[in-house]
Design a protein around this nucleic acid. Sequence first.
DNA 1: TCATTAACACGGG
DNA 2: CCCGTGTTAATGA
Length: 209
Amino acid sequence: MIETLQSNFGHLFEEELLLEISKVGKHFNVNSGETLMELGSKVRNMPLLVNGAIKVFRLDDDYREQILYFLERGDTCAMTLNCCVANSQSEIKAVAEFDSELILIPAENMEEFLKYKSWRRFVFDSYNNRFSELLEVVDSLAFMKLDERLFNYLHDKALVNSNLLLEVTHNEIAMEMNTSRVVISRVLKKLELEEKIKLHRNKIEVLEL
DNA sequence: TCATTAACACGGG
DNA sequence: CCCGTGTTAATGA
């Protein structure tokens, strides 16, 4: 585990902290599509994402989803951070975008790690990054038309997958964006006519980033 | 005006 | 045949 930490977080944390994390951290692997965190579940660990990507969703009262953002290597989940500090329940749902590798740090260690400058920096930066991503989501929901939002989604998905050819169905997108398949199909068709994407069965090709 | 729901046809695997 | 896709019509916000 210490090697994993060194290669992925060595640039962020000092050696001493890496060692401490390796003592209390737990290695954790998830398969693509697996749910890491359910709405309302108790949060006792804070994840460090070593490899892969995680989708973070907000759910409404009827458990309909709205995707918020993707987490990538080197990220942590600020919502989880929040919950660990407050010892509260999860406000979000997290699903693995593809096979991913995490290191879980028990909540009780978080505070003592604050004696490390690099840890304070990391926590602070994570809040910053998530906060601005969240603002972008607010902008997107409040001001953008669905065609822009949809292209944004495809764009982000292409980036985290490092692949312009996305294996996703119209229905899956509709679920993640909390709308209906009819609408997604229609807007995708429009984006295709604008030559921003190309549609295939079960696949969508992003033509511009 | 634009989303949702239901319904239907088409076609690839 | 099953599922994903493209479309339409009716209804509602």
